[in-house]
Design a protein around this nucleic acid. Sequence first.
DNA 1: CATTTGATGTCGGAT
DNA 2: ATCCGACGTCAAATG
Lengths: 243, 243
Amino acid sequence: MSVTTLHRPTHRDALGLLESAFGDGRMVTVFGRCSVEYDGRAASSLGPGDRLVVCKPDGTVLVHTDENRQPVNWQPPGCVHRASVRDGRLRIRSERSSPDERLDVDFERIEQATAYEVRDRSDLRLTGSEEDLRQRILDDPDLVEPGFVPTATERETAAGPVDVFGEDDAGRPVVVELKRRRVGPSAASQLRRYVEAVDEEFPEEGVRGLLVAPSVTDRAAALLDELDLEFVPVDPPESAAPE
Amino acid sequence: MSVTTLHRPTHRDALGLLESAFGDGRMVTVFGRCSVEYDGRAASSLGPGDRLVVCKPDGTVLVHTDENRQPVNWQPPGCVHRASVRDGRLRIRSERSSPDERLDVDFERIEQATAYEVRDRSDLRLTGSEEDLRQRILDDPDLVEPGFVPTATERETAAGPVDVFGEDDAGRPVVVELKRRRVGPSAASQLRRYVEAVDEEFPEEGVRGLLVAPSVTDRAAALLDELDLEFVPVDPPESAAPE
DNA sequence: CATTTGATGTCGGAT
DNA sequence: ATCCGACGTCAAATG
């Protein structure tokens, strides 16, 4: 049986469904009027309202209102769900340690409770990521500049790994930082850290820093200019083709 | 009626429910075997599997598998949902412009389709954010250091707004960057940008930069040291009380 | 609109 | 376990 639904169940009947579903690894949704308390990395309190609560077998909890992509409250994977009935009302508690965090969802009315058997073997295939941009540049280094020769990716430095490392046509070391979208000041700072670290390794060699991205903000452009870093425009990885 | 559910509906019946719900601002979930195609800022393809699809009246779409806090695919608020039946199968399409993005969810089997009336007037009250940390420091500046006098928050500089700006007991300008949790190299770089900008405004005054956070990573500590920036430990805003 | 930054960010990969 | 950076990040505040 793939889906089991209770419509306007008693809190005790809902409890039975949840305990059964938590026990055998099914996903659960409960819709109804509830309040939510969270305490952990931060703390929050949410008064009564109608929400959709999703409990996943991996320990995730999501509390969704009718707005926004983000849940209003949640618990990440790795938590332990427990359901109980106190004073005739359903409570879903989800906890974890390190960090210590607790989420309580208290229902005053339950419109629907559902358990789902989920079979899903497919993996998402995504294109247009920074990884794809890197591959494009390795395939055609002239996209960066004529004569550029990549020698390493994710090359370790004292400041962390550099996206693409190589040499320009004059043999100078080149640090390339890739961004899949328009960048702000933080990307310029990141590139700066890498260049400074590589400069320590190759003193007197005039290490160059290149920010490869579709575009930069004004402030980032000013920062790059001040730091003698260079911006190389590239087409965005996937242009959302209007039609 | 607050919740309307169809169990193993025909695709055409599910279509009716969705069109009705999209029309009068109800939230919808559909659970079943589906495939998902996305094209926009990036592009993705997801083969068949059982997922919970949530459509919100604000234009949000979420496609959730039985794992992870994040939906495997989604559409942000502001999109327009449309449902249709092609070759006897339900498709939910959600689109927006600027940027041009499209999400298609194609069902081959529908286990359940539900529409919800959502009433929710409560707002989340959250404590433990960076904002709270700032308030704590304004209330008791000695948490930063004895004699520190804050003079402004969100003070504008050429590099952007500084969290807290003030003077130390010797009258030197102080730039404070706040973080609610353990910080890495990027926070040190951020503070550096602000200090350099303020230094341009107050040359020769020896502007100090203080990173106020619960802790720092080794690399960040080394970076701060190298840049003559200071780390000030503070208790995290909400200590997850173990018990 | 675009920019900037925080977030209970989440997530994956590497150490 | 921690560290680090990407993310179709999202979301809010601000110009």
